[in-house]
Design a protein around this nucleic acid. Structure first.
Lengths: 372, 372
DNA sequence: ATCCTCCGTGGAACCGGTTCCATTCAGCTG
DNA sequence: CAGCTGAATGGAACCGGTTCCACGGAGGAT
């Protein structure tokens, strides 16, 4: 009661009349401790409310039981699902997780250069962020275990999907339904990693789209391809453009579900029936996609995070991670947003529905009803 | 090159011909170091690639520059938005963040009892998780700074909203539009915190609903109130029930946007027009709500996380946190899902839309449309 | 009875910083 | 020129564990 200082291992040793070594052994469940001694020490631990310092043991042991996860914009649903998968595994394995959310190249560089630095974490998982060779070198130099998810890095274990195959899958799905004029909406890829985070999946998905069209004997119509900044707003604008053409597409493949949402919103606004007049397929299968009834190319998001975490744990256990590149499977999930061209919706008596107002700045316009 | 061991502060001191104290001063930018000395040390640091051990400095300094955030189910959108807000602030303040995602009471107890334990983090933010008095006591005993968001805890700084007022706001909005038969769909609250995480917001929102009805001279009809497990699926089932009654409600207030989504899905499926035949209002204003065109009671989710983080930082700086209870403002956001009873949709020519199939396990069923 | 093992244990050295105290020395005062 | 002041610096003590080595003693083998 007298001292407000927390008990340390020396206090416990003194109070139980043993050496610090013995206390340490009891705490860590080592063998070679007589039962009587063990109980005595445990009693004192209980009485003093002793809790070993994580910091001190980490320093002495040289291991922190902590890993870092570096992710871009935490707001994106796909990122969150990956993160959740990883956290579950790390939790179960007894690791703590520090989350580094990156919104700018500067932040990315800050984390990626400080993380390999001694004694912060035992290992790092990088998700969806392309690494520069300097980053990787820093990890290698510090021999800090590194694993990536959703990015390929030479010489580093990575869990990824085949974006090109995914693009082909989506396009083949539309072709199989009978579509010929198929639009593509994706990201404009900026390869300068000094000024942008540089996601490149959209480009590979587009390439898969082109190949599928090529294989079907129809070259991609450059006029039906639109790329721009990520986000539903731009996708919506592009869709409005495409649908305003004299020869509009009968189907659109969006490089991500988020963008597909923009496509759906545009169709809604223009009074273009989906899938009756326009089929839409996305990519990722975020949980929102099921809600929106969006057909999509499903990649196992949560599983990818979990796998990344498992591989990092293996690395930390000193095991070899067998194939550096781990490819996860893709599947087409057909929901209500795709059908053959010129078809009506499957259910004719579909009700008129709430109007979506996806515009960001809609405030509380308190127009009261004018009838009661 | 000879030693693979990383350089430590003694190596730097030796190589630059100064004492460890001086190196420490240089690293930490202390005054009282001659410029020439400073440059010499920095050169050696650069050359040796020296990086101070976070662990060692934290141990010596007694502070980790790390905080923990404890959150329930990372999958819920509202949780993610709060988390993102907190991360941004903590990042800017130079703190690292360990995220503890809790899915069960056991996990909750594990984190909340180990976190106050010495030397893990400088402080803790708990989000949306009701604390038992034992938890709080552990923090107090260890004098570990604690702040909560979206939960009220006596004697602990907390950032919350007035759920009851929010419930009233939602209901008054519907009443003002002319609705008389207003249903409520929310969570069944289980107060046993040993077996459930015990969220209670839904109950308070329901109370606000009752009061608003009472104030309008209409007692709540018990038949129009349904509570059950959280999630859209149950909300959907309840809605189907309510709409199947001989005297169905003309409006429904769902205690969360997630549940409101279930309500919308049910209406969609039954062919009940929203807002023509049924008005729907939710609660939270998750980003999905804007997309779905859902009217809702907006609470500043991201801002709540940011505020919690700011208050914890203040606490860590040793400042007093002025009013223990910080109330954030609520506003009604009217979108397309609410209007007066018996109205047609605002835009008559609203197109038939894609059908939503929110069922979890919908695979690629290949039924083609039946008309062209 | 003697020697050898091996178990249980104490405690010093160490992990890698920070901090404070003592010391040196340059520059200024009288 | 002695004395004083204060800036720059070296280094021991410390933060709180882990680990390894050395040692005492009990029990088994010969």
């Amino acid at each position: 009661m007298r001292s407000s200082r927390r008990a340390n291992i020396a206090d416990v040793a003194a109070a139980s009349g043993v050496g610090v070594g013995t206390v340490s052994r009891v705490i860590n469940g080592a063998a070679n401790v007589r039962e009587a001694t063990r109980l005595k020490v445990l009693a004192v631990v209980e009485q003093l409310g002793y809790q070993p310092s994580h910091l001190a043991s980490a320093l002495a042991r040289g291991t922190t039981r902590t890993v870092a996860i570096v992710v871009p914009h935490l707001t994106a649903p796909s990122v969150v699902e990956r993160l959740a998968g990883a956290l579950t595994v790390l939790n179960a394995e007894g690791y703590e997780t520090v989350v580094c959310s990156v919104d700018s190249p500067a932040q990315r560089d800050h984390f990626l250069s400080s993380l390999p630095g001694r004694h912060r974490t035992d290992g790092v998982i990088v998700m969806s962020l392309p690494l520069r060779s300097g980053h990787v070198a820093a990890f290698r130099r510090a021999s800090a275990p590194l694993v990536t998810v959703d990015v390929s890095v030479r010489g580093v274990p990575h869990t990824v999907i085949d974006d090109r195959a995914g693009g082909r899958l989506a396009t083949e799905h539309l072709l199989a339904l009978g579509h010929a004029r198929i639009g593509f909406i994706g990201d404009r890829v900026r390869r300068n990693t000094a000024t942008s985070l540089g996601f490149t999946a959209s480009d590979r998905r587009q390439e898969g789209y082109r190949r599928a069209l090529g294989a079907a004997g129809a070259a991609a119509d450059q006029e039906l391809i639109r790329v721009g900044p990520h986000g539903p707003a731009h996708a919506e604008a592009f869709t409005t453009e495409l649908l305003g053409r004299p020869d509009p597409p009968t189907a659109i493949f969006a490089a991500s579900d988020t963008q597909a949402m923009g496509v759906l919103a545009a169709a809604d606004r223009l009074g273009v029936a989906v899938p009756g007049q326009l089929s839409v397929i996305g990519f990722d299968d975020i949980s929102l996609a099921a809600w929106a009834g969006l057909s999509t190319v499903r990649q196992p998001l949560e599983e990818s995070g979990a796998e990344g975490a498992r591989r990092l744990c293996a690395l930390l256990r000193g095991e070899q991670v067998k194939p550096l590149r781990q490819l996860l499977a893709l599947t087409v999930v057909q929901r209500g947003s795709t059908t053959g061209p010129g078809r009506a919706a499957a259910r004719p008596e579909v009700p008129a529905v709430r109007q979506a107002l996806p515009q960001p700045a809609d405030s509380k316009s308190d127009r009261a009803g004018d009838r009661s």
